[in-house]
């Protein structure tokens, strides 16, 4: 059963990839906060301070995205 087996391996492989990615993300989140590159908790204030003329709340990182960030 070629397709069944392939499917099994593909599913196992992808599951591992996703699990690693998820845990990698956790590590990344905490590490970048520890190093002071980012402050995720500050982003929670986006909902609180949402007047159109209030200053954008951004992470403290040095925004390299002025050109490519705008989609």
């Amino acid at each position: 059963m070629g397709i069944r087996e392939l499917q099994g391996y593909a599913s196992l492989f992808m599951t591992i990839v996703f699990v690693v990615a998820l845990y990698g993300y956790i590590v990344y989140l905490y590490r970048s906060e520890k190093k002071g590159e980012k402050d995720y908790e500050k982003l929670g204030n986006i909902a609180l301070d949402d007047e159109i003329d209030s200053k954008p709340i951004n992470t403290s990182d040095p925004l390299p995205d002025e050109k490519k960030g705008a989609k």
Partner: peptide
Amino acid sequence: IYYFLPKESGQAVYSYKLSLLSFWGLMF
């Protein structure tokens, strides 16, 4: 709820990082 509850109560989300993680968890 991630918008209206914080906005109505004046309290920021308890843990923003947890909200990001549960998002990806839910998607997967």
